[in-house]
Amino acid sequence: TTLHFDLDGKKLQYTGVSEEIARLVEELKRRGVDLKEIVRILEELLK
């Protein structure tokens, strides 16, 4: 799965993300978590 974000005018793309992580990101968005925080979490998970 590939995730795309537009953060402060920067286009971020994460490829090869598992379905689980993609679902987690969608859930965080639904809960109103700040996009910067979501990206920070995502980068930690993908290390």
Results as ranks from 00 to 15, higher is better:
residue 1 T to V: 15
residue 1 T to Q: 14
residue 1 T to D: 06
residue 2 T to I: 09
residue 2 T to G: 04
residue 2 T to Q: 05
residue 3 L to M: 05
residue 3 L to D: 01
residue 4 H to P: 02
residue 4 H to Q: 11
residue 4 H to F: 13
residue 5 F to Y: 02
residue 5 F to R: 00
residue 5 F to G: 00
residue 6 D to L: 09
residue 6 D to F: 10
residue 8 D to M: 04
residue 8 D to I: 01
residue 8 D to L: 03
residue 9 G to A: 02
residue 9 G to Q: 02
residue 11 K to N: 08
residue 12 L to P: 00
residue 12 L to M: 08
residue 12 L to C: 05
residue 12 L to W: 08
residue 13 Q to R: 08
residue 13 Q to D: 06
residue 14 Y to G: 00
residue 14 Y to R: 00
residue 14 Y to S: 00
residue 16 G to F: 07
residue 16 G to I: 04
residue 17 V to F: 02
residue 17 V to R: 00
residue 18 S to P: 14
residue 18 S to W: 02
residue 18 S to G: 06
residue 18 S to R: 06
residue 18 S to K: 07
residue 18 S to A: 06
residue 19 E to G: 09
residue 19 E to M: 13
residue 20 E to A: 12
residue 21 I to Y: 08
residue 22 A to Y: 14
residue 22 A to E: 08
residue 23 R to H: 12
residue 23 R to G: 12
residue 23 R to E: 12
residue 24 L to C: 07
residue 25 V to W: 02
residue 26 E to R: 13
residue 26 E to V: 14
residue 26 E to W: 15
residue 26 E to T: 15
residue 27 E to V: 14
residue 27 E to T: 15
residue 27 E to D: 14
residue 27 E to I: 10
residue 27 E to G: 10
residue 28 L to Q: 05
residue 29 K to A: 14
residue 29 K to C: 06
residue 30 R to E: 07
residue 31 R to G: 09
residue 31 R to E: 10
residue 32 G to I: 04
residue 33 V to Y: 13
residue 33 V to A: 06
residue 33 V to L: 10
residue 33 V to S: 05
residue 34 D to T: 10
residue 34 D to Y: 12
residue 35 L to D: 10
residue 36 K to C: 05
residue 36 K to S: 12
residue 36 K to T: 13
residue 37 E to T: 10
residue 37 E to N: 07
residue 37 E to D: 11
residue 38 I to G: 00
residue 38 I to A: 02
residue 38 I to W: 01
residue 38 I to H: 00
residue 38 I to M: 04
residue 38 I to P: 00
residue 38 I to L: 07
residue 40 R to Q: 11
residue 40 R to L: 08
residue 41 I to G: 04
residue 42 L to M: 06
residue 42 L to R: 00
residue 42 L to V: 07
residue 43 E to L: 06
residue 43 E to A: 05
residue 43 E to P: 02
residue 43 E to D: 13
residue 44 E to A: 13
residue 45 L to A: 15
residue 45 L to Q: 10
residue 46 L to E: 02
residue 46 L to F: 06
residue 46 L to T: 05
residue 46 L to A: 03
residue 46 L to C: 04
residue 46 L to V: 06
residue 47 K to W: 15
residue 47 K to V: 12
residue 47 K to T: 11
